[in-house]
Design a protein around this nucleic acid. Sequence first.
DNA 1: ATACGCGGTATCAAATAATGAACCACCACT
DNA 2: AGTGGTGGTTCATTATTTGATACCGCGTAT
Lengths: 260, 260
Amino acid sequence: MGTITKAVTLLNHFSSDRAEIGLASFVRLTGGDKATVRRHLQELEENGYLEQNPETRKYRLGPAILRLAAVRETSFPLRTFIRPIVHGMAETLGELVHAALLQGDVMSTVYSADPKVHGTRVIFDESEMLPLHATASGLAMLAFGPESAVDYAIAQDRKSYAPNTVIGKSDLLHLVRQTQAQGYSFSDQYFTNDIQSHGMPFFGPKGTAVGTLAVPVPAGRLTPDLRDQIIDELRRGCAAITHALGGTMPAAFEPDQPAP
Amino acid sequence: MGTITKAVTLLNHFSSDRAEIGLASFVRLTGGDKATVRRHLQELEENGYLEQNPETRKYRLGPAILRLAAVRETSFPLRTFIRPIVHGMAETLGELVHAALLQGDVMSTVYSADPKVHGTRVIFDESEMLPLHATASGLAMLAFGPESAVDYAIAQDRKSYAPNTVIGKSDLLHLVRQTQAQGYSFSDQYFTNDIQSHGMPFFGPKGTAVGTLAVPVPAGRLTPDLRDQIIDELRRGCAAITHALGGTMPAAFEPDQPAP
DNA sequence: ATACGCGGTATCAAATAATGAACCACCACT
DNA sequence: AGTGGTGGTTCATTATTTGATACCGCGTAT
């Protein structure tokens, strides 16, 4: 593992509910040596990717991140494209909708919208990274994304997140094939108990999936009717995003999607 | 220079008008070896910090950046705090206002708002990094920020950006003292020809400046009246941001700022 | 007053990762 | 069919990273 990856791995430990991390915590999280971790943290801090809370001496993500995000969004405003689409879907469905991109062997959220109409809601952490094998987003990506993603997923140890999580290699491959056949993925409490989720990919210029839309709902609320609505909206949304990306949907996705 | 810094330096070459960079360009920009640069780019790409435009094969900033920015903004919503303040100032003044943070030896923009009321406008690149010695933001930071910033600024070779740029060490120190005395900085076409800019720092919990607000205007438009308005707004804005940060303004800044 | 956990630092030999000259394939231009 | 511009690759050499050990200063819980 290269030094860059090690350093960047430190950054990846941050999430919404882990916004500040101290040196000792980092050592525990990474299993690395204290001196080494410290050197990395220091170098990241010098470059503005981290900053230290002057009171607690814990580290948090630094301002450099903001600048880079601004650059990316200015030049390639994916989030800006996706936002109204996801929002519209969330309004129509009355359910949480989220968009994610493939990032290595994991899905990384780009945007999510919660219509806040129900008493019980899916709690979704915008900054969480989603595993490929245990989420509707991930399965959709495995089914239609680059083959390397599948290789990753079957090669690595698959963590179990909930009682239903699919761990077995052949089970997973079956699930992927099923997803390919039906054109959308379905996670029946694979990642979180009591949450069922449908996912579908959108495509980039090369014709392989680059990201996914997914709609997680509390298990009790998923009627056949809602399911059909969700699939319909997913199809519409993915087509729209694919179009915005200058991408091409594989033939299988087109028939049910007449131009509005 | 450590490997991490080298890699991160690659990322820093991106800006709004340099959104995609090819391998050869990187080699030219960094002066490094092609194979080395390539390996760094690849490792960054594997971690989602870069992605390759499949058509041009050039590199652009990747989705990991978005996630991290979301984490930082969720846990430490500086941009969200600052946005309405900067907006309000821009509306009131009818001029561009921008907020920046100290990031190493450079100022990094957090937010800027352009009221778009005048025919001639300041063109400002949201993602540019501003040098400490040649901008109103930078001078304000030198005057009220950590001493290390001044050390940086006087140690390094100061690049000239415009005919007026202050290069001399003693000249710069004089300018810093003057800024400390009057409580705001003034850049008379130090960075860009025909642009005059006023800057003022805001403070974090430690009582040293962590960032700045600045208002650049086309040189012809700066009347004494406008100047007074700008200073007034800067004072209000910096006080507000400092307050939001849980920071403390040094005594020198308080008198003219009665609670509204 | 002591022991523990915290952040941070220094040293140094061994292990590992970074390096770069040379090379390949491709494309466009001439 | 040569030239020069891409992006990408190889591999022996070199230099950097690494981590075990030990230590400092600080706060706080025992």
